[in-house]
C-alpha cells in the first residue's frame, strides 16, 4: 500500500494562497476557517534578508499524535496511503487532537467536529491529486507515493535539499519542503 506525501518547492512558491482558496471551494470549508495556509518565514536584518515561503497543512504524520489521543477513534489513519482522516460522525469535538498536533493543523468546524486537510481523499479515490496541487499557478507542489522510488516526489527528495516541519516532535511528518 502506497504512502502518500507532498513535496513543496519553496524556491518557486510565491505565497499567492491559491492552494488556500481552492481548498475552500473544493471542500466547502466554512467562512473564517482554512485547512491550509501560507507562512512567510523571514530571517535576518534589513537589507540582508532571507525568506522561505511555505504552503502548510496537516502533515499526515507517520507517527500521528492526534490519532493516538482521539478518544472515539474518529481520527484515524486511512487505508489509502496512510492519510490521516477524521470521521465526522464519530468526532465529539473534544479538541484533544488539536492540543496534540504540533502544527496547528486542526480546527473545530462550526458543526462541532475536528476538521483539517484530507489530502483531498475524495479526489485521490478517483485517481486525482489534491486540489491545491492541481491549481498551484507556480507548479511548486507535488504529491504522490513516497514509498515508490520512481515517483516524482521521491525523485525530487533524492535530488534536492529539503526539510520537514518540527521534526524534533517525532511525528514523522510526510510533507517536505525543497529549499
Amino acid at each position: 500500500m502506497a504512502r502518500f506525501g507532498m513535496v513543496i518547492d519553496t524556491k518557486k512558491c510565491v505565497g499567492c494562497m491559491d492552494c488556500v482558496v481552492v481548498c475552500k471551494t473544493e471542500n466547502n470549508v466554512p467562512e473564517g476557517f482554512n485547512r491550509d495556509w501560507i507562512v512567510q518565514d523571514v530571517r535576518g536584518k534589513n537589507p540582508h534578508l532571507q525568506m522561505e515561503i511555505r504552503s502548510e497543512r496537516c502533515n499526515h504524520c507517520d507517527n500521528p499524535p492526534c490519532v493516538y489521543c482521539c478518544p472515539t477513534g474518529a481520527s484515524h489513519v486511512h487505508d489509502l496511503g496512510g492519510v490521516v482522516i477524521v470521521t465526522h460522525d464519530m468526532c465529539i469535538g473534544c479538541k484533544a487532537c488539536i492540543a496534540a498536533c504540533p502544527y496547528d493543523a486542526r480546527f473545530i468546524h462550526p458543526e462541532g467536529y475536528a476538521d483539517k486537510c484530507t489530502f483531498c481523499i475524495h479526489r485521490v479515490e478517483k485517481g486525482m491529486g489534491p486540489a491545491c496541487v492541481s491549481v498551484c499557478p507556480t507548479h511548486c507542489m507535488f504529491w504522490g507515493a513516497l514509498d515508490d522510488p520512481n515517483s516524482e516526489v521521491s525523485k525530487l527528495l533524492d535530488s534536492r535539499k529539503h526539510h520537514a516541519l518540527i521534526p524534533e516532535a517525532g511525528t514523522k511528518p510526510q510533507i517536505f519542503y525543497l529549499v
Binding site: C16, M17, D18, V20, V21, V22, K24, T25, V135, C136, P137, H139
Partner: peptide
C-alpha cells in the same frame, strides 16, 4: 491554472 482571485 487560475490565480487565487480567479479560483475565488
Amino acid at each position: 491554472r487560475l490565480c487565487p482571485r480567479g479560483t475565488g
